[in-house]
Amino acid sequence: MGPDRAAIELIALEKRFGHIQVLRGIDLAVTAGEVVCLIGPSGSGKSTLLRCVNRLEEPTAGRILIDGEDIGGSECDLDRVRTRIGMVFQHFNLFPHLTVLENLTIAQCKVLKRSRVTAEEKARTVLTRVGLLEKIHDYPSRLSGGQQQRVAIARALAMDPEMMLFDEATSALDPELVGEVLGVMRALAEDGMTMMVVTHEMGFARRVADRVVFMDAGVIVEKGPPDQILGSPQQERTRRFLQRVTDR
């Protein structure tokens, strides 16, 4: 991958659900190793945008380029592309009928065709990275929310993705558990992972993001370095949103 080619490029992206236009033409490029935080009020389309990146939502117009490759068509091997993009969900979505180890190895074996031995080794490595190796044989129901989310992150990492998408990864967590997950995300960022993060955690955005993108009503209102967007926003809408968020 060339140094000047974007890891993720969204061109004139539109998405409509029935009569509701959720995305009204989004242009955004994320370079390799960059951490981009998407902020905005609910209904702004930030989650929809994220989900378009790996085509969990199908855009109604526009193009999606992963490493310069257009992944929008039906000829594209979407399953293969998705192995390069890790995704972490708000509600973790761990497989409850499988142990932590099985959660981490099932896709490695079925999709990447790794041997069980290799997959298990990988699982142990990523679990250590998120600090949960001792839970390897537990079922998800025995873990706290924060632990489940860290396992979910490990599950995505086990596939050796080139980039990671986080869809409000901490929004469903009790406040005291948010920190442990943000810590893992920060470590990932510092290790150079390309990340697109939809979040309400402004502190995280300020400290970890390379760029912050503020969205409202389906458009990007403002984007730029965190100090600029969060500290001295240019647009009135951005200012109003930040005021509402911090006025608690």
Partner: peptide, 12 residues
Amino acid sequence: GQMEAARSLGMT
């Protein structure tokens, strides 16, 4: 979410 998680891992 289960299907979404599975598909996003690359499963058919």
